[in-house]
Amino acid sequence: MKDVVYFDHCASTPPYEDVARTVMEVMMKHYANPSSLHGMGVEASKLLDRSRALLAGKLQTSKGGWLFTSGGTESNNLAIKGSVRYYRSRGNHIVTTGIEHASVLEATKQLEAEGFRVTYLPVSPSGHVRVEDVRAALTKETVLVSVMHVNNEIGTVQPIEEIGRLLRDYPKTLFHVDAVQSLGKLPIDIEGWGIDLLSGSAHKLRGTRGVGFLYVREGIGLQPLASGGTHEKGMRAGTENVPSIVASAKAVRLAVEGIPSRAAKTSTLRDKLRAYVETVPELSLNGRAPLAPHIVNFSYPGMKPEVIVHMLEQRGIIASTRSACSSKDNKPSRVLLEIGASPLAAASGIRISFGDEHTEEHVDRLIQALDDVIKQLKPLERST
């Protein structure tokens, strides 16, 4: 489709050209299995080691290691299920929030069926978990606290540093952070914030699909989700996708190095769009500061979000409704309900997410398209 502006970077990002080239180059040259003992296998294994070292260097992690998975969903599942099953002798209690990604919430629901007890913390109307609520939920049986860094629907930034400081007084409680929407977009001090496990996804930061990252602090054990080999320190069986891993490690480097300039640019675009939404009576903003620089979420209560998305697409604007993993679900957004939105507002959320390529002219075009859509839909309000 020609002349389209893509505002769905939270769902997936266009890969860096250098990343795409790297996949092809490594695929053609280093196709041997990195677990093989021959020279070609050793060379492939060295590429994995260099990729881990690159992640450790750029993300300043010296006291832990990085595992490669198939994506953010697997990283979250391995971090949560793997850790609580491994340390079940410590307790059977998990603390998380009501606005986590489905890959976290569904994992904890499965663990509840195994006998674990899960506390789902509420969030404030602004969309943030309260540190005092985390403290109140902790017990001697709490084996894991899992809180996302940036919410994937409304962009609220959670107080990860403060939660990590709190958990220093609970050495037997592990701290997992879903950083899929913040890795490469916001600064993260993994070791300084006391994070034990951290999940990331390559295709959210202009890497390739099918590659996830999982930081595991030194000394932490995980029960594997799958059996079949000693790959990834025995924690994740399966032959590693060397070409995509090498390319995605490069994407992490490019993304991290570009954080200051990108965050400044996208914050300006975010604020311009939010200022416009605040002037439109039909629309309501979701989430308040602190916010990630690249996400804006608003509702048009009473209107079906898929109608708005398709009308915007007809005008060359690509937007989304919520997490791509849940966008085909017709139910009201669970996240918007958690922050106190009405059922009508929660059922009509629209998410705009920015990337490197966007300019103020692109936002102006989005605003014009929204104006056109609202004018066309407004006469239908009373009949919906």
Rank of each mutant, 00 (worst) to 15 (best):
K204Q: 08
A136I: 06
V131F: 09
G302F: 03
L167G: 13
K63E: 13
L55A: 10
T279F: 03
H203V: 15
E257M: 09
T119F: 11
G210E: 00
D133G: 10
I154K: 00
D196Y: 01
T230S: 15
V177P: 03
R130G: 06
A102E: 14
A341P: 00
D372F: 04
V129G: 02
V84E: 03
K46V: 05
A53N: 11
C10M: 11
P224A: 05
E17V: 09
M28S: 14
R322L: 04
D189W: 06
Y16E: 07
M235I: 07
F116C: 01
D371V: 06
V131M: 11
Y6H: 07
E313K: 13
V246M: 01
V104K: 05
R315P: 00
D356W: 09
H231T: 12
I374V: 13
H362N: 11
P187H: 09
L370E: 00
L186Q: 05
A137C: 15
G316H: 04
L283N: 03
Y170G: 04
L111Q: 10
G155R: 02
E278T: 12
K185S: 05
A44G: 03
T321Q: 06
E25R: 15
H358D: 12
E360V: 12
G228L: 05
L105D: 08
P379K: 09
S103L: 03
V4Y: 10
S75A: 15
G212W: 01
A56C: 12
V42I: 12
V216E: 00
G57C: 04
R206T: 08
E153A: 15
T13E: 10
T359Y: 09
I339R: 02
V5C: 08
K109Q: 14
T139P: 12
V147A: 09
P260A: 02
D169R: 13
L344N: 10
E161C: 12
I295H: 03
T156M: 07
L54C: 14
S284P: 03
L105V: 06
V5P: 02
G349V: 08
L222I: 09
L78Y: 01
P15D: 04
G57Q: 07
K328L: 10
D364V: 07
K265E: 05
D329I: 14
R270Y: 03
T208C: 11
T22A: 10
N152A: 14
Y87F: 06
F354K: 00
G212T: 04
T384N: 13
C325R: 09
S348E: 06
V150W: 05
L37I: 07
T359P: 13
Q181K: 14
T69C: 07
T208E: 14
